[in-house]
């Protein structure tokens, strides 16, 4: 994989987020450094849902946090609503915050256990002094009802009284309080039961339509993002492998890594021929990534060229981009 390149960018008036050459470096033991995100570019058009997919350690969560400038970046640019977030002074950035919100994987630890549900959801409104206390209280009720909770019953309860799925609903209500334009969801359903995952995924779809949101959906599971995304970006060791629409990516993955991800999803059908695990081993250490294409050490099609040259993203079909020397 992976690749660099910007062939998949779509500059237009509708672009809400444009990320170019974004790099995030962390210091590692022994004076070395790890590029968790290594020159990533992508853009988001208003109203779309971009899924970012990859294994643990591929940099997808770091990317999500870096976009919101929750962690320091070491290069590149992030333009949100046509303003450069990375170059902006802190006080200006703070004024942008209501428009960009995030929800996290563990819904229980992301809610203060001492706060009531009403206070958790109201807090952003109170901090930004939106409306009178009565107006805020009314808004809290609206938000709780919108995410499928009975406001009168849940208002005064504490997070520990709720299941994981219900806590994720509370997190979603809170993230929507300030009417954001962009919502970054970092593995929002990985900690939940299969039966509850579908409820939360459907809720996110409803909220997107109701509030006109643009979503970034980070996940390790292609099957989960398939239903909700309009575009999928596959990452490996801090780089982009493939970008395509969800149906294209499933029916004709061109990158060998995407193919392996598709093959790893368990099929709930015992009569289906049992394939061996689609991919062996785990990603190499990002401290010392392989030269050229970073996926070559696990790739069935790797050649000398893959070690020598880093592949660049190229359009192989309309809207379908792959960074591979030997696409499938």
């Amino acid at each position: 994989m992976a690749g660099s390149g910007k062939a998949h960018m779509r500059p237009s008036a509708d672009t809400i987020l444009s990320v170019e050459d974004l790099t995030v470096e962390f210091k590692a033991a022994g004076g070395s450094s790890v590029k968790a995100v290594s020159g990533i570019s992508f853009d988001l058009v208003r109203g779309e849902t971009l899924a970012v997919v990859g294994e643990s350690g591929c940099g997808k969560s770091t990317l999500g946090k870096a976009i919101l400038r929750l962690i320091p970046t070491s290069g590149g640019s992030v333009r949100f609503d046509d303003r450069d977030l990375l170059a902006m002074p802190e006080n200006e950035l703070r004024q942008m915050r209501p428009a960009m919100q995030m929800i996290f994987q563990d819904p229980v630890s992301s809610l203060d256990p001492r706060f009531s549900v009403a206070r958790l959801v109201e807090e952003p409104l109170a901090i930004w002094e939106r409306g009178t206390p009565e107006e805020r209280s009314k808004r809290v009720d609206e938000l709780l009802e919108a995410v499928g909770l009975d406001a009168q019953i849940v208002r005064e309860r504490k997070p520990y009284e709720f299941s994981g799925g219900q806590c994720q609903r509370i997190s979603i209500a809170r993230s929507l309080a300030l009417e954001p334009l962009l919502l970054i969801c970092d593995e929002p359903v990985s900690a939940l039961d299969v039966s509850i995952q579908a409820q939360i995924l459907n809720l996110l779809q409803d909220m997107k339509e109701r509030y006109g949101l643009t979503l970034v959906f980070i996940s390790h599971d292609l099957a989960v993002v398939k239903a909700v995304s309009t575009r999928i970006m596959v990452m490996y060791l801090g780089k982009v492998c493939e970008v395509a629409g969800p149906d294209t990516l499933y029916t004709s993955p061109r990158h060998h890594y995407t193919h392996a991800l598709v093959g790893s999803v368990p099929l709930p059908d015992p009569s289906a021929p049992r394939a061996r695990a689609a991919i062996q081993g785990e990603p190499p250490s990002p401290v010392d990534p392989p030269s050229g294409c970073r996926f070559r050490t696990r790739c069935p099609a790797a050649t000398d060229k893959c070690a020598a040259e880093e592949p660049q993203l190229a359009e192989v079909a309309p809207g379908h981009f792959v960074a591979c020397h030997h696409p499938r």
Binding site: V194, L201, N202, K226, A227, T230, G245, V262, V265
Partner: peptide, 23 residues
């Protein structure tokens, strides 16, 4: 219902997923 609520790659994208309501 449990089987239907599993996210599948061969489901059409963009639609609502079958789910089990309640708890």
């Amino acid at each position: 219902a449990l089987l239907k609520s599993i996210p599948r790659l061969d489901q059409p994208s963009g639609g609502r997923m079958p789910m089990i309501g309640g708890r």
